[in-house]
Amino acid sequence: MDKFEKLTGIAAPLPLVNVDTDMIIPKQFLKTIKRSGLGVNLFDEMRYDDSGNEIPDFVLNKPQYRQAEILVAGDNFGCGSSREHAPWAIKDFGIRCVIAPSFAEIFYNNCFKNGILPIRLPQETVDLLMKDAEKGENARMTVDLEAQEVTTSDGEVVRFEIDPFRKHCLLEGLDDIALTLEQAPAIDTFESRMAQERPWV
């Protein structure tokens, strides 16, 4: 997995609540058997019209946000389907960090498995960052995972909380499966105990 340490980049504002994973990547793109290549279809139905032309008003189509690496969004981001295609599409587009007042849980988990940092902050703080993001390409934000800080283009510093284990994995780019396989003896023990206690499973 890719590491996430520190990122300075353009933040795109998406002031919508309940952005669901169907919006992030509509189902017609779930038919792939690969992880890559979904970036062009990120937010497809908001981004393109029926004939496949870009809708100029949509934030990621605006010249100043085409290179965005951070997304600032409304409450309950990533709700709905569990599709990991949503973070794959976000990452493939080039976004490595999403900031919102809250996230749906499965989406939140999925981000960490893909080197994306989801940051939860209180509504007022997100409002402030949203304003900053609205300034466009000159407003570069910095996200520092080690220090757990977001710095706005004006130099204002906001602290965020994150689970220490997830932080560690993201900073080091650790692969969960390899880590878990180190626990193989514990899994073996559990399984033999269960064969006694709950043999019907």
Binding site: S82, E84, N109, N110, N114, I177, T180, A184, E191
Partner: peptide, 21 residues
């Protein structure tokens, strides 16, 4: 019973466990 993402699917296939809080 709950939903998981594809990376977690791979994790469960390989280890029959899930990392949870």
């Amino acid at each position: 019973a709950h939903g998981i993402g594809t990376s977690e699917v791979e994790h469960v296939l390989a280890t029959q466990t899930l990392i949870q809080s």
